[in-house]
Nucleic acid binder design. Structure first.
Lengths: 190, 190
DNA sequence: GAAGTGATGTGACTTGGTGCCGTCACCCTA
DNA sequence: TAGGGTGACGGCACCAAGTCACATCACTTC
């Protein structure tokens, strides 16, 4: 195999994101993506179950990271504290060299409903993973899902801000701030 | 036009839901759906933008209903009270003869990831519609989205229970109860 | 009764996605 | 060093979702 070349999977992701950014998602064909990566359509579908997934495959790793962080949070903590620990753990993996990639991903997803659909599903997956982990720690049902939802909401809001190069703060800082804001907003509901 | 026959659109929805329930979503072809409705594939796609949408087209109406109810809620109300009024308004439209249809829809959606994706997007649409309406009433940003999220969550939970024929309560009662539970759960977050 | 309008049918086409089979490089072992 | 196994890839045929241009047919309206 061509091991001197970067990962085939990685090449496919890069080629796809670039082409989507240049021409739009719909105007880009799987054959084009594979061509730019020096591969074929068949190989593309061996690495990703469908065209959308090439952009979101990483999210599954995130779900595991979040769940693990909640499971391993030390000592007795409130649901929101556990969620905060999970956010700290995952945001730490977003080093600054991933910002451009993230910005592109966000822009491409923003103007295509097909991708928004997949994004919505993945977001639900993150929330479910966190809620599951919380339940395994003994958190009861309405609070577990609610805390997980707040965590996901904080993460996405922070991610959106972080993808904008204007913003200089760390993703971790942004996420902590977002979660604090949400916690405070609860009081204004009723 | 064949006005002596039931609505073409309605026939397509019925045919699709029945076929999905009988054979599964993937195993059912758009041609089959159109055939059973006495139409053709082309006509199907004139009524629905894609195969999934035949099951979820109604949700767009729901989004408008929820938003209108929030906009027209009388007097000064808290965000959660406005959301409660919206739930009352929409659940009132789910008469008991829609239960079997709803149960089928829920079952079909449950075991197909493609449909879950669309459902996730539609759910987000409902939440956005309510949040928009709340903001137009002057509710500030984090609370508006949170109240909308709680409302959608209560609605879906109630809907799931209502689709199960074991449950004898009204959808309105179930939704009110679900929202109350969520309101109470907030205290256990931190 | 002729023109217009709206809903439908027909058929060709593109593309996402699946499945089968062949090939080639690499690795391990006798 | 020969030979078999394995894993990644290409080629090709195929199906179904979706698009589009064009024809048809009933019904309305002037």
């Amino acid at each position: 195999m061509a091991r001197w070349e970067p990962n085939a999977r990685e090449r496919l992701v890069r080629a796809a994101l670039d082409l989507f950014a240049e021409q739009g998602y719909d105007a880009t064909t799987v054959n084009e993506i594979a061509d730019r990566a020096g591969l074929t359509k068949t190989t593309f579908f061996r690495h990703f179950p469908d065209k959308r997934e090439v952009l979101f495959a990483g999210q599954d790793t995130h779900a595991r990271l979040l769940a693990d962080a909640i499971t391993e949070a030390p000592g007795p903590v409130t649901p929101l504290q556990a969620v905060g620990a999970a956010l700290d753990a995952i945001t730490a993996t977003f080093t600054d060299d991933r910002r451009e990639f993230s910005a592109k991903l966000r822009a491409v997803t923003a103007d295509n409903s097909e991708l928004q659909e997949r994004a919505a599903l993945k977001r639900g997956g993150l929330a479910n993973a966190m809620a599951d982990a919380l339940r395994k720690r003994g958190v009861s049902e309405p609070p577990a899902s609610l805390a997980a939802e707040l965590g996901v909401r904080a993460f996405y809001q922070a991610f959106d801000q972080w993808a904008d190069p204007v913003n200089q703060q760390t993703l971790t800082e942004l996420a902590r701030h977002a979660l604090d804001e949400l916690r405070a907003a609860i009081a204004a509901l009723d």
